[in-house]
Write a protein that binds this DNA or RNA. Structure first.
Length: 444
DNA sequence: TGCACTATGACAATATTG
DNA sequence: CAATATTGTCATAGTGCA
């Protein structure tokens, strides 16, 4: 109690009213169990640290306030905030959500540090369980907005490079238990050379990468790899520092690998499938551009499976899944690899190529019921209600909403959650809330 | 039409320097 | 501490070709 008073006092000193400070403490304690907060305040436990820090950073010192003021001005032009926002605690929509370092979420296999315990309010736990995903580096304030719309649950930020050979910085908001998780076995290759030993042959010593950067939807042009080759050929051996820097910059930017003498190339689609944890040839059967696009948009299967692994014990007879923005079925592949039977999947996906990929995987591997819906807008609450009465409810609502307007590589329309595509997040919220209320907290 | 290919910054977090 | 540099990012729009 005295510690709590101390925290309140320090917040008041920062210029917040006592009520605001009080509410902030309550919110912190809501995300992490009270004892842990007290215990870990001075420890180096990064995960816990992240949670407590975040609570205080939202109110952080005067400098932060000034920065928030600036960005508020800048953002005015984006118009009024999103629909359905709860009033924010400090009256600002610009809460910063610092990303943890290392980005390992609540816990990860191989990172045996003391892990977080968290307590969700009874209203927030299932049924149904839900799992939401998006890019970690969204514009300022967007994750705070997402969190507010998902019951103020703190995101779990994970960089998949701690689990596989490529980086993938993502935030996940879910109400799953976080104790007793188990990874998919065998663990995926963790470095480039573990994944692709044959690239050692042409890999120059001055390229010190051990992991690839984030696999994206577009790959380098032949023209670019030609330019790199010409630069290398006309340089000395080893190349001059400036040539090395040029080549390395491009290799990192485009995720290029060494496939021959002075020759770099983008990964092939099947190599991306491998790193992302999909079965070989999962995306085969559509154009190469489409394969890159759908793979760049998908989950890293091992990461998601680790989070979902807690469901296996809870649903020995299988799960009923509402899958929004299914894509090529990263979540379903994760469940399947975990050995969790999918009794029902209602899948919403608008991309023709992705639908084709997912359907053919389903037909090859699954025996449950699959219902395919193209447009999330056409999944009205009435329709959700009829599915619920047909199947008796859903156990898991899973999906990553479009990141187009949040992602840094979008040069044109990075307009945040209110952007044309990313605003579909609000349909996720709508549908999840409807499922929750229709299932009314009772076991079905 | 559909596909492959190419050129095109902006932003924020982090690292470095003054 | 403040200014500056570096790094990295689930992309889009336009063009030419079959």
């Amino acid at each position: 109690m005295s510690e709590r008073d101390e925290k309140i006092k320090s917040l008041v000193n920062m210029g917040f009213s006592e009520d605001e400070a009080n509410e902030a403490i309550i919110r912190c304690v809501d995300s992490v169990s009270a004892s842990r907060v007290a215990e870990d305040c001075h420890s180096r436990n990064l995960s816990d640290h992240q949670v407590t820090d975040r609570c205080f950073n939202s109110f952080g010192g005067r400098k932060k306030a000034r920065l928030m003021e600036e960005s508020r001005k800048k953002r005015k032009r984006y118009g009024s905030g999103g629909q359905g926002n709860r009033p924010s605690l400090d009256g600002s929509d610009e809460d910063s959500m610092p990303l943890p370092n290392p980005m390992v979420g609540f816990n990860l296999p191989g990172y045996s540090g003391p892990s977080v315990t968290r307590m969700l309010s009874k209203l927030d736990t299932g049924p149904p369980f839900f799992y939401y995903e998006n890019v970690a580096r969204a514009p300022k304030g967007e994750w705070a907005k997402i969190s507010r719309n998902l019951f103020d649950i703190q995101p779990e930020f994970v960089d998949s490079l701690h689990l596989c050979a490529a980086a993938r910085k993502r935030g996940y908001i879910h109400n799953l238990p976080i104790e007793n998780r188990s990874p998919l076995l065998p663990l995926p290759p963790k470095t480039i050379f573990e994944a692709f030993p044959h690239y050692k042959k042409w890999w120059p010593s001055w390229d010190t990468r051990t992991h690839l950067n984030c696999l994206q939807t577009c790959v380098a042009s032949a023209k670019l790899t030609d330019r790199i080759q010409r630069a290398l050929v006309s340089s000395s051996n080893p190349p001059t520092k400036s040539v090395q820097k040029y080549v390395m910059d491009e290799c990192k930017k485009w995720n290029l690998v060494w496939v021959g003498k002075n020759k770099v190339a983008p990964l092939e689609p099947d190599e991306m499938e491998y790193i992302l944890g999909f079965p070989r040839d999962h995306t085969r059967g559509v154009g190469k551009t489409q394969r890159y696009k759908s793979l760049g948009n998908s989950f890293q299967v091992d990461t998601v499976a680790y989070h979902l692994s807690v469901l296996r014990r809870m649903f020995p007879n299988g799960v009923r899944v509402l899958s929004l923005f299914t894509g090529i079925g990263g979540g379903e592949v994760a469940l399947h690899k975990l050995g969790i039977h999918m009794r029902v999947v209602v899948s919403i996906e608008i991309g023709e190529a992705s639908k084709k990929i997912f359907k053919s995987w389903w037909d090859q591997t699954q025996t449950g019921t699959l219902i395919e819906i193209t447009d999330v807008k056409s999944l009205t609450n009435d329709r959700v209600a009829s599915f619920i009465s047909q199947f008796g409810g859903f156990d898991l609502v899973i999906g990553g909403s479009p990141c187009n307007n949040l992602a840094g590589s979008n040069r044109h329309h990075r307009d945040g959650l209110e952007g044309k595509h990313s605003a579909l997040f609000y349909d996720y919220v709508r549908i999840l809330n409807f499922v929750k209320s229709a299932m009314g907290g009772r076991r079905m």
